[in-house]
Amino acid sequence: MFDPNLYDQRHIQLQSSVALTVFAVGRYLDAYLKNFLTSAEQHFMLGLPVTYYVFTDLPENLPNIELAPQRNLKVIQVEKHSRWQDISMMRMKTISEAIESEIRHSANYVFCFDVDQEFKGRFGSEALGDSVALLHAHFYKLPKHRFTYDRNPKSKAFMKTGDFYYHAAIFGGLWEKVKNMADACYLSIIEDKLNDVEALWHDESHLNKYFWLHKPSKLLSPEYCWDQSIADKRDINITRLIWAPKHYDTLRTP
Rank of each mutant, 00 (worst) to 15 (best):
P4T: 01
N5I: 00
Y7M: 00
D8Y: 06
Q13G: 04
S16K: 01
S17A: 06
T21A: 02
A24S: 10
V25C: 06
L29M: 07
L33D: 12
K34Y: 13
A40H: 04
Q42S: 10
V50F: 03
V54I: 06
T56G: 10
R71W: 13
R71I: 12
I76V: 13
I76A: 14
R83E: 15
Q85H: 09
M89E: 13
I95H: 06
S96M: 01
E97M: 04
H105G: 08
A107E: 11
N108A: 07
Y109C: 02
Y109S: 05
C112L: 05
Q117N: 14
G121M: 03
G121R: 00
E126A: 00
L128G: 06
G129E: 03
H136R: 10
Y140D: 08
H145I: 10
D150G: 02
S155G: 10
A157K: 05
K160E: 13
D163E: 10
I170C: 07
G172K: 02
A184G: 13
L187T: 10
L187K: 11
L187V: 06
K193F: 12
L194T: 14
L194A: 08
D196I: 07
V197P: 03
A199Y: 12
A199L: 01
H202R: 09
H202C: 10
H206C: 10
K215A: 15
K218D: 07
L219R: 01
C225N: 10
W226Q: 05
P245E: 09
